[in-house]
Design a binder for these strands. Structure first.
Length: 277
DNA sequence: CCACTCCTGCGT
DNA sequence: ACGCAGGAGTGG
């Protein structure tokens, strides 16, 4: 579900609802998340401490306490919600943190359990989460960042699609926004990254920046069940060029959008606007 | 580079 | 019943 624009929208809506509130004792479902639900003791140092704010890198959301905080990865189907403590529980609610003062709580809901919530103890710990990740796509408007990514991109033997999905190269793009960026840059998803010219790479990274910024401005893409921290849907699904539009006419040339399986995932593209060479 | 895995739910 | 789903990791 969530790529950088969805996670950023969750963060923007979550922040004012939790900032300054104290985390209560967590309740959890005991079902394993991606890395097992941590034992209660690992969360205990956060209990009673106020939340200072939130941050994000790529698809990873951080909730900051006085020292340390929470690392939240939404996986495919994770939701981070703030709701009244007496509001009905959605199926697959795995974590609940009462927030004081007030009657609300922070809830983590994740049917597929590909996501993860765990504590980080200090900035050094948090840095280990970010270290393996490339720059956030919102920073691609800085020439030095774009230049560094461009060089790395043109060094890999993989397809453009696979390269852009690699969080070590750029952190935050997923299947939707990669397909969209490649369409905007008029580049084939199947082309080898290595074969890109410098101007093509520049064009592509500008497109990546654009789709992410537009996605944030439109509060994310709700195809099935993505919602922000207040339960509101996004808007960007009405502005997609190719993703989930198999058989529909390309907005540029009218050719039917195609879907092909690439590395076990769907790639949507316009075969006319995005020539392989 | 691909295939396959973790899970549940939904549309055909 | 089957294929597919916005992620990420592993192993061949």
């Amino acid at each position: 579900m969530p790529e950088a624009p969805e996670v950023e929208t969750v963060r923007l809506t979550l922040d004012p609802l939790i900032r300054g509130k104290a985390l209560g004792t967590p309740w959890w479902s005991f079902l394993p998340l991606r890395n097992r639900v941590p034992d209660e003791a690992s969360f205990r140092f956060l209990v009673g401490r106020p939340i200072r704010g939130t941050s994000r890198h790529g698809k990873v959301l951080f909730v900051h306490s006085e020292t340390g905080g929470l690392v939240v990865r939404l996986g495919m189907s994770g939701r981070c919600l703030v709701q009244a403590q007496d509001a009905p529980l959605a199926p697959h609610t795995h974590l609940r943190w009462p927030l004081a003062p007030g009657e609300t709580e922070l809830r983590y809901v994740d049917p597929r359990r590909f996501g993860d919530v765990r504590p980080f103890v200090d900035e050094e710990d948090r840095a280990t989460v970010i270290a393996p990740l490339g720059p956030d796509p919102t920073t691609l408007d800085q020439p030095a960042v774009a230049q560094a990514v461009s060089l790395a991109l043109r060094r890999t033997r993989r397809s453009l699609k696979a390269a852009l999905l690699d969080q070590a190269l750029i952190a935050g793009l997923g299947n939707i926004y990669v397909c969209e960026a490649l369409f905007i840059a008029r580049l084939s998803p199947f082309r080898a990254a290595k074969g890109l010219t410098a101007p093509e790479a520049t064009r592509l990274l500008a497109a990546c920046h654009q789709v992410i910024q537009d996605g944030i401005a439109r509060r994310g893409t709700t195809l099935n069940d993505y919602v922000d921290a207040e339960g509101r849907q996004g808007d960007n699904q009405h502005h997609l060029f190719v993703f989930a539009r198999e058989g529909d006419p390309c907005h540029t040339c009218g050719t039917a959008v195609r879907r092909k399986t690439q590395a076990n995932r769907s790639t949507y593209y316009c075969a006319r606007c995005q020539r392989a060479r």
